[in-house]
């Protein structure tokens, strides 16, 4: 069932705002959310297929932990540890939705640094950074990922929701929001768009309490409004560049020509793009 996205503005306490419109929402919708999120995204699976045996990774904002059990054909080839703030989702992630396989999960905030520095070989952040309510917090989110992986070989994959939605998207962007997007688009929309995306508990899996015709009007009463920052074209790349700069990392491929000390550590953008209504970016850290 299509759900309507509405524009919103973050108030001056982004932490409390996220608590209300992200953490509380996920705890509330955990089991229903999980039942709709069982299929790994192809590009994420592909990234994980390229991970060598013996590596350890972080899934920052693991949700129901659907990536923790990969690769399914080589169980235990590498280990992915799931981090999330929602106790409800972690309880599901831990057992991978009730199977006898136990996953490794940790409760924490994606802006915290509760790991040995550079302890991981890789990190994935899938549909998580877009729940952080200010640009400073999103930069901090990327910094935490860059710090969590090995400075010599650490690999990172980030996915965020895009303003540019494909035709198969179940979400309807209202015209008023579209207009705002178009206005911004003239300036390449550097700041993206803050929106609420309703979560309708009574649709799909659960029995509708009222006929569909009545429910379809605007936002149903039992919909829960989740905060998202919809990313615009270059915004994810800019975010990575800001985070790298704050950490003193050069952005680009390793270059042995530059002998100055400042270029001895960096992060390379391996690939970036748009897929199925999301922007993604793959990074690799290097040290000379």
């Amino acid at each position: 069932m299509p759900s309507e996205v509405t524009a919103t503005a973050v108030d001056d306490n982004p932490e409390a705002y996220e608590q209300r419109h992200v953490h509380a929402v996920y705890d509330h919708i955990a089991s229903h959310f999980s039942s709709t999120r069982y299929k790994p995204w192809p590009l994420v699976s592909e990234f994980l297929l390229s991970i060598p045996a013996g590596w350890v990774g972080l899934d920052s904002g693991t949700g129901n932990g659907k990536y923790l059990g990969l690769p399914t054909d080589h169980p235990g080839k590498f280990w992915t540890i799931g981090l999330d703030r929602s106790q409800g989702l972690l309880n599901l992630a831990r057992t991978a939705g009730g199977s006898d396989k136990i996953r490794e999960v940790v409760r924490g905030d994606v802006l915290d640094n509760g790991w040995r520095r550079g302890a991981f070989d890789f990190a994935i952040s899938i549909a998580t950074i877009h729940h952080l309510a200010t640009v400073e917090r999103r930069v901090a989110g990327v910094k935490r990922l860059l710090e969590s992986v090995s400075p010599r070989h650490g690999r990172i994959l980030i996915y965020v929701w895009a303003i540019e939605q494909d035709e198969h998207s179940k979400r309807i962007i209202p015209v008023s929001t579209r207009e705002r997007i178009c206005v911004d688009a003239e300036e390449q929309c550097p700041s993206g768009q803050d929106v609420f995306v309703p979560w309708v508990l009574s649709s799909d899996n659960a029995r509708p309490k009222v006929p569909r015709g009545e429910q379809a009007q605007n936002v149903p009463p039992d919909a829960i409004r989740r905060y998202y920052h919809m990313f615009s074209g270059e915004e994810l790349r800019v975010l990575v560049q800001s985070a790298a700069k704050e950490l003193g990392l050069k952005v680009g491929p390793p270059s042995s020509n530059e002998a100055d000390a400042n270029s001895s550590e960096g992060v390379e953008i391996v690939v970036s793009g748009w897929e199925r209504s999301n922007y993604y970016i793959e990074l690799r850290r290097w040290q000379i």
């Binding site: 060598p52 013996g54 169980p75 235990g76 280990w79 040995r116």
Partner: peptide, 19 residues
């Protein structure tokens, strides 16, 4: 105690990473 899938390739790769 719970049995886990035994994967020697993982263990050999992980050995230099462990503190």
């Amino acid at each position: 105690l719970r049995e886990a899938d035994f994967n020697p390739d993982f263990l050999r790769g992980f050995l230099p990473r462990v503190e």
